[in-house]
Nucleic acid binder design. Sequence first.
DNA 1: CAACCGCCCTGGGAGC
DNA 2: TGCTCCCAGGGCGGTT
Length: 273
Amino acid sequence: MPELPEVETTILGIKPYLIGEKVRDVVIRYPTLRFPIPSNLASLLRHKTIKDITRLGKYILCSFEHGTLIMHLGMSGRMRILTNPQQPLKHDHCDIILTNGITLRFNDPRRFGAILWQEGLDPRQHPLLKNLGIEPLSRQLNSKYLAKLANNKKIAVKSFIMDSKNLVGVGNIYATESLFLAHIHPLKPAGKISQQEWHRLATSIKTVLRLAVKAGGTTFRDFAAPDGTIGYFTVQLHVYGKAGLPCPRCGTKLKSVRISQRSTVYCPHCQRR
DNA sequence: CAACCGCCCTGGGAGC
DNA sequence: TGCTCCCAGGGCGGTT
């Protein structure tokens, strides 16, 4: 499932083929993603030039002079660069065809992804981007920021760091891994986390994400890079998906608990409440 | 407002 | 082999 590192990898992969290129056409085969793909997308983009490809949280922003194409990979979304025409396969919902002959193809079996349009210069005006928190790999993420935001909150720390209003791009896998590395129990109320613990957590979130970006995404189950490479288990996961196995640090049997409908693995010895 | 929970969706794996 | 059931989960939107 694409988390921030997978989004980063996707951008790195598609960017060189797209920047400065002009859109010839847009083909929508199956508009009902998480939100409907705007039906007028082709007329919005035709003959327009792609200025840049950037990222805001897990949203991929493809900017034009008159607005921004906002794309989200959801759970199973994937983008491919096709250098020559290919028959669309199942779940190939949308193509963006450029005048240089290249096609950006969006595939998403579970259809939790999204393709949206925001008119104007500031993509942050889009309702989905308006309330996004800080970037985890920026200097803004530090113990001071987290402690201030968590003040008195009772919400489980895991849910807190996965809430995009607080910080973006930390999904279930990396939240689980970060908490393990920081020796923090995932159910501990956010308001009860000490300054020292916040420091460890901020550090481990950055470490985990940086390592994963470097490895080209966790590529755990559904993810493939734009060139089609599938790198299963390129990142060493310590606890995610390993409930019942011994803790890599102390050997205690790893436990599993569901937190807001998400499976969460932790070590009952290393991560105390 | 804070916290929580249901829901959207399909493929893959387990169990029978 | 083939069927059924369950699980994976980002994030919105509704409820408490």
